[in-house]
């Protein structure tokens, strides 16, 4: 009698365990977005992988920096002067990211020109800006007008383009600071790269040049929010 009881209990426990394992398996499968991944090919997967790796590395770096800042503030807690210095440095970094400071560094200079067969149009410029950003450009300017997050490029007439509120004309000199190899190879991919697909195949004129001491001026645009309000979290 006692033995039977034990057997039943043991079997019961085992069944419970089995159910648990199965439920766990189902949950893991549900949580991971396997279906989206399933349909991806190897090259796409490689791109996806390197993209997440980069994002991870960037976030890790940011985490270290944030931690370092906290401990710096903690050390200067008693000293007002020191802590306001830290605060100013933080603001300075944010202004650099916003494009509100003159910057210098190595990168590439792309020159696009109108020719007898075709005009450079607004698309050629904002597509180029997009391609440069994809290649990791950290600062971009066109004819010395700084391109920021919300800069707009507009076609006005053949041979005349407006960037923010300034008119620009050929030759268009696009400066970009970043990793020279990435920037250049990002534009010069065969057939479907920017230089082949957008410029050459449309009979337009463009050249790329690597330069080591590129200077890009600060944005002169007034940046303020007119309509947006911050969402306050509870």
């Amino acid at each position: 009698m006692k033995g039977k009881g034990t057997i039943i209990v043991t079997i019961g426990a085992m069944i419970a365990l089995l159910v648990c394992v199965m439920l766990m398996q189902f949950r893991t499968i549900e949580e991971t977005d396997i279906e989206a991944l399933e349909t991806m090919r190897e090259t796409e997967l490689r791109a996806e992988l390197s993209s997440w790796k980069t994002k991870y590395e960037e976030a890790s770096k940011l985490l270290e920096e944030t931690k370092a800042k906290i401990s710096e503030y903690e050390q200067t807690m008693a000293n007002n002067e020191e802590s306001s210095k830290l605060l100013k440095e933080e603001l300075n970094q944010a202004m650099i990211k916003l494009g509100k400071t003159d910057v210098t560094g190595s990168g590439i200079v792309v020159t696009l020109k109108d020719n007898d067969m075709a005009y450079i149009d607004a698309y050629d410029l904002y597509k180029l800006v997009n391609e440069l950003r994809l290649a990791g450009a950290e600062a971009i300017s066109i004819n010395d007008i700084r391109i920021t997050a919300m800069t707009d490029i507009k076609w006005i007439a053949n041979g005349l383009i407006r960037i923010d509120s300034s008119p620009v004309t050929s030759p268009y000199v696009i400066k970009a600071i970043g990793d020279q190899t990435y920037l250049e190879s990002g534009l010069t991919l065969k057939t479907y790269g920017y230089m082949d697909y957008v410029i050459k195949s449309n009979d337009k004129t463009g050249v790329i040049e690597r330069q080591d001491n590129i200077t890009i001026k600060a944005s002169t645009v007034d940046m303020t929010f007119e309509y947006a309000e911050e969402v306050k979290k509870q």
């Binding site: 994002k55 960037e58 976030a59 300075n92 650099i96 990211k97 950290e138 600071i177 970043g178 200077t215």
Partner: peptide, 12 residues
């Protein structure tokens, strides 16, 4: 939800 990296630019 990402990071804006500045590695190659220096201020004047």
């Amino acid at each position: 939800e990402g990071v804006i990296v500045i590695e190659h630019i220096r201020t004047l």
